[in-house]
């Protein structure tokens, strides 16, 4: 009995000793690795820092303008070319489709947009309509129809 207990405790002592030693070594190894990673991170941060400076340099508006002038066929945007979303007509769908007698949407023939001051409707698009205008969606207000 005593022998077994003694053997057990001896084994435990050895195990704990080895275990402590192993943990201590492992901690040292991890600390070295941690330091290495830290220094890698610093190196990376420094590279990123240099790249940021380079990025800012390459993105200098003067340089971009020069490149755009050289490679793009674009010009300075004029205020006239800008419009807001509100100025786009919202009932385009109603002008483009109507419901036929089976309740299916039928496209009007794509007609060129009216020029200002030119209100006559396009006869060709009228000919494409199989039936008279249905009631589901208001008929196109191209003018001169009614």
């Amino acid at each position: 009995m005593t022998k077994i207990v003694t053997g057990f405790w001896f084994l435990m002592t050895v195990l704990i000793g080895v275990g402590t030693y192993w943990v201590s070594h492992e901690v040292e190894r991890l600390e070295r690795r941690y330091a290495a990673i830290q220094s890698d991170i610093l190196d990376e941060q420094e590279s990123i820092h240099v790249f940021q400076a380079e990025w800012s340099y390459l993105n200098a508006p003067g340089r971009i303008e020069k490149l755009a002038r050289e490679y793009l066929k674009l010009d300075q945007i004029q205020p006239l070319q800008m419009a807001s979303i509100d100025t786009i007509p919202t009932d385009t769908d109603a002008k483009r489709y109507r419901l036929d007698k089976f309740g299916e949407a039928v496209a009007y023939m794509p007609a060129p947009r009216d020029r200002p001051g030119e209100s006559a409707y396009d006869e060709a698009s009228e000919n494409m309509i199989i039936d008279g205008p249905s009631v589901g969606i208001p008929a196109p207000e191209t003018g001169g129809q009614q």
Binding site: E46, H49, V50, Q52, A53, W55, S56, N59
Partner: peptide, 9 residues
């Protein structure tokens, strides 16, 4: 946030 001045090593 565009970089205008920085230190380089």
């Amino acid at each position: 946030g565009i970089l205008l001045a920085t230190d380089l090593p």
